[in-house]
Simulated scan of single mutants.
Amino acid sequence: MTNEGTDDTRPQTVPEGIPLLDAESRLPKNDPPELLIITGMSGAGRSRTAAALEDLDWYVVDNLPPRMLAALARMMTPAEGGVHRLAAVVDVRSREFFADLVSVLDQLRMQGTDYRIVFLDAADDELVRRYESVRRPHPLQGEGRLLDGIAEERQLLAHLRRRADVLIDTTDLSVHDLARKVREVVAGEGDRPLRLTVVSFGFKYGLPLDADHVVDVRFLTNPYWVTELRHLTGRDEQVRDYVLGLEGAEEFADRYVDAIAPVLDGYINELKPFVTIAVGCTGGKHRSVAMTEAIAERLRDRGQSVRTLHRDLGRE
């Protein structure tokens, strides 16, 4: 029974309305699992590729016997917190097990598992130079020459090279160039933003061990000698206003952030993910705390991801 003036588009009863409500509900979207198979010539950069992916939060398995690929792929899940981005390094180090790889790849396709093959390669002369620099034998060299092992490996991997979805020639790439290419071409993430930590500290307790840059603000008048401020900290408005109101304090914070901007750009270019800026005063309670917050605020205004930490606060 329908009352006059009611909206007929709405469900009349709760049971009848459940399908409509279910249809309108938005389920959380999870990215589909991603499987990368990293392979290629020994010495061409497989390990560096794996490390670059691990830095991007991929789950990486090195020197995996191919037979275990299918089982590992079935363990992947799109759910948050599960393994949904898996990179497996598979190469001739697995010796006789490596012969199973082609059939395993076909099996993965048959069971509906999508994957990409990333093949790392380099010129023979560059591979020889790299092996000689680390003074290690090629895994297929045996009693022969280094070039014999490289030639045999090329023959074994020829079919995989043809099947590769991504081919990276590392002959002229530095380790940083390779990591950058993996981020851009393989993971599709490009340069990640820096994660900055600005930490206050007291010089009398020692420098932070992980500091990349140290800022000394002991040139500012110490609020400790102001009776009304002594019991407060740089987090309190009265102390913050006092410190930043001192001659040159605001200008120092502005100029410091201007000066460090090209340094941070360089860190991004060199793939340095974490940077710690340590701001120190005598005890780490007043000046350094207020200046830490001021510098962090200016860095955030420039689009940086910044957290603050006050190491020695409450230590006195």
Rank of each mutant, 00 (worst) to 15 (best):
L108K: 07
L108V: 08
L108C: 08
L108R: 06
L108M: 12
L108D: 08
R109Y: 01
R109T: 07
R109G: 01
R109Q: 07
R109A: 09
R109M: 02
M110G: 02
M110P: 01
M110C: 02
M110D: 11
M110Q: 10
M110K: 03
Q111F: 14
Q111W: 10
Q111D: 15
G112C: 11
G112V: 10
T113E: 13
T113R: 13
T113D: 10
T113W: 04
D114H: 10
D114A: 13
D114V: 10
D114K: 09
Y115P: 03
Y115T: 05
Y115N: 08
Y115F: 15
R116Y: 06
R116W: 07
R116C: 07
R116I: 06
R116N: 10
I117D: 04
I117Q: 04
I117T: 05
V118G: 05
V118N: 05
V118M: 07
V118C: 05
V118Y: 09
F119L: 03
F119Y: 13
F119V: 04
F119T: 03
F119M: 05
L120S: 07
L120F: 10
L120N: 09
L120G: 07
L120A: 09
L120W: 08
D121C: 06
D121M: 06
D121Y: 03
A122M: 06
A122T: 07
A123Q: 10
A123F: 02
A123R: 12
A123I: 03
A123W: 03
A123L: 08
A123S: 10
A123E: 11
A123C: 02
D124M: 02
D124R: 00
D124K: 00
D124F: 01
D124E: 11
D124I: 00
D125A: 14
D125N: 13
D125T: 13
E126C: 03
E126Q: 05
E126H: 02
E126A: 06
E126W: 01
L127M: 06
L127P: 07
V128T: 00
V128S: 00
V128E: 00
R129K: 11
R129D: 01
R129P: 04
R129M: 02
R129L: 01
R129F: 00
R130L: 02
R130M: 02
R130P: 09
Y131E: 13
Y131K: 14
Y131V: 13
Y131Q: 13
E132R: 15
E132M: 15
E132T: 15
E132H: 14
E132P: 13
E132S: 14
S133H: 05
S133L: 06
S133I: 02
S133T: 01
S133Q: 02
S133N: 04
S133V: 01
V134Y: 02
V134G: 00
R135L: 07
R135C: 08
R135F: 08
R135S: 11
R136V: 07
R136H: 09
R136L: 04
P137M: 14
P137N: 14
P137Y: 15
P137W: 15
P137I: 13
P137V: 13
H138I: 11
H138R: 11
H138V: 12
P139K: 14
P139Q: 15
P139W: 15
P139H: 14
P139F: 13
P139V: 13
